[in-house]
Amino acid sequence: MAGASVARAAQGATRAQRAGERWAPWILLAPTLVIMNVVGVYPLLHSLWVSFTGYKPSDPNAHQGWVGLKNYAEAMTDGQFWHAVLLTGAFTFASVALSLVLAVLMAILFNRPLPGFVLMRSVILIPMLITPIAVGLIWRIMMMPELGVLNYLLGFVGLGPFQWGSSRTTALVSVILVDVWQWTPFMFIIIFAGLKSLPRSPFESAQIDGASAWQTFWQVTVPMLRPVIIIAVLLRMIDALRTYDTIYIITRGGPDFATDVISIYLQRVNFRFFDLGYGSALSWITMILILIVVLIFVNLTGFLRTVNEKEAR
């Protein structure tokens, strides 16, 4: 009782204090805003400008000046681009979903004081630390159908030789596998940190109430982990939509367009064909698509609403 009134008085005092700190948040935000606007804005505006031109510095025959919306119109009917968009969507969905399930399960599994778990946890984090180029190369050698170690080892357990990245039918699955391998640790580290930050008491109450492990998981752990899970999914999704190095090194976008994701196509248009006007238009369309996906995701999960509610507390 007395504590409650003290708390209320305290709240009153801090709110008054907070009213006087009107500039404080902007001072805190200043460095971020400065960096964003100084380093980030120019490339953005430049590329927007270029997307309305026919800039193709390598081709003396091309019209380099203003072309208005021609690039965007061309992009709408570009079969290869939309094929890439579809592929990227499938790739991202599969990779992020699998990573999420694995990461959550592993976070809970490793949240025990069993011997050797600390070491194993550190080892599990290693894949995401390795540079994507090396990841691509090592998986490319391992996945060679006749000379690679993967088929060699699988042969021992009687699993037939797979074509992995060398066949149109299995290439996408192979690069998804590599992506899951590389980035599950990323989601794991975030979710694990979130798990470690959870207060003990709800779990203790659940135990006292006699809840089973399954019930505790779905009704206590997951709801409390929601914001962290959503953040992990959001960040991973944005990066998965832009995957390039690993896929390029393993399949170069092939065989026959099977793994020709957006970033590989963009790289081709921008830096193989050096068609920068068209390439910039494609990049902007990509960015808008990613933004739409993010907005849908954020609204669907009610993420910002939850976050805002928590912050009003």
């Binding site: 907070r18 700190e21 404080a24 948040p25 902007w26 805190l28 935000l29 971020t32 964003m36 980030g40 490339p43 953005l44 590329s47 959001l234 960040l235 944005i238 990066d239 832009r242 957006i262 970033s263 963009l266 790289q267 921008n270 830096f271 390439g279 910039s280 990049s283 902007w284 990509t286 960015m287 990613i290 933004l291 993010v294 907005l295 954020v298 910002l304 805002n308 912050e311 009003a312």
Partner: peptide
């Protein structure tokens, strides 16, 4: 600042910051 203070346009600002990551580095 975003977590503790009440700011107008807080969500938009947060999304702007996130959009840095959405731009393909090629451009």
């Amino acid at each position: 600042a975003l977590a503790r203070f009440d700011l107008r346009g807080k969500n938009t600002l947060a999304l702007e910051i996130l959009s840095i990551r959405m731009l393909p580095p090629i451009v």
